[in-house]
Structure formats: structure tokens, C-alpha cells
Amino acid sequence: MLKEKYQKEIDEIISRYPVRRSALIPLLYLAQRDEGFVSEAAMKEIAGLLRLTPPQVYETATFYTMINLKRVGKFHLQVCKSLMCALAGSDTVVEWVKTKLGIGLGETTTDGLFTLNAVECLAACGTAPMMQVNDDYYERLTEQTFDRILADLKQHGTCSLKTGPFMWPEAPMRNEK
């Protein structure tokens, strides 16, 4: 149950809004952080917390693509496929995933580590091609950096190639990391 585990955080979130329902997306995120996806039980509990009906929670949860109603792999690879990335070769990135991991769009590797999805523009069009893995952006992908990202994720659970505070082009004098 979310309430027992996160009572304080839940109260704090609800207190930001004059109307309880506004806390719905933040609480769905909380549930997703907890379990990796949003289960029906969690949606029912959130409905109770916000004094909504379960369908009200469900209709919101299903509208937003970032709310996962099914379990995804430990690393959710989301490759941007919108035009600006496509001009820079994003279709090739999807092919890399397919050949290197043997999964197609919407699929998860059998070890449960990687899920692949193609998504729409993530506001990184100037540093294309790019992908988001869980919370992190990886930009200006090449096959070499891509291989390293997969290897690092597998081995260390994270990769130092992820983007920090964004600026492109970099400020003069500031050398590339």
C-alpha cells in the first residue's frame, strides 16, 4: 500500500493544490516509481486517496504515454523517431537495438533488462539522434557510444554518457566533457 509507505510524501503532494484531483499525475508517478508500473490496485488506492472513482483515475492514467500500465524492462530505451531525429539517422538507432538486443518495438529482452519503444520528439532535436533511458537522455548517438551505453547499463546500471544540464552548442571556452 502506497499510503503506509509514503504517507508524508503523499500529504505534501496533495497540499500543493487547492483541489485534490490535481495530485493525480504526481501520485501515479509515485506508484510507478514504487512498482515500476502502475497496477490496478495502485489506481484503486489513489482513487480513494483523492476521493475519485477508479474510472476517473483510469481515464487519466491511460491518456498519458509516460504512465506504464504494464511492466517494462529495467532499462526502457525510448528512441526518438520524429522528423528532426530521423533526418539525423534515428531509424538506424532503432535498427541497432533490433540487431544488438534482438527486440522489436514494444518488446522486452527475455532477461527483462531492456524494453524498446520509439517515441515522439523529446526536445533534443539539435543533438540528434537521441534516446531516453528511464530518466536520462543520451544524445548525438553513434554506434560506438550506443554500444558503450548498453554495456555500461548492463554492468553498472548507469552510464556517464548521459546528458547533464543541457546546452548546445556548448559555451565557448568550456571544453567538452
Partner: peptide, 14 residues
Amino acid sequence: SEPGTFKDRQLIER
């Protein structure tokens, strides 16, 4: 989220 736009991200993060 308008494809082609990535300025607000820089203003926010920097």
C-alpha cells in the same frame, strides 16, 4: 513538445 524546439530545456537547466 513541438518537434524542432529545444530552447526552454536549455533556459531551464542552465
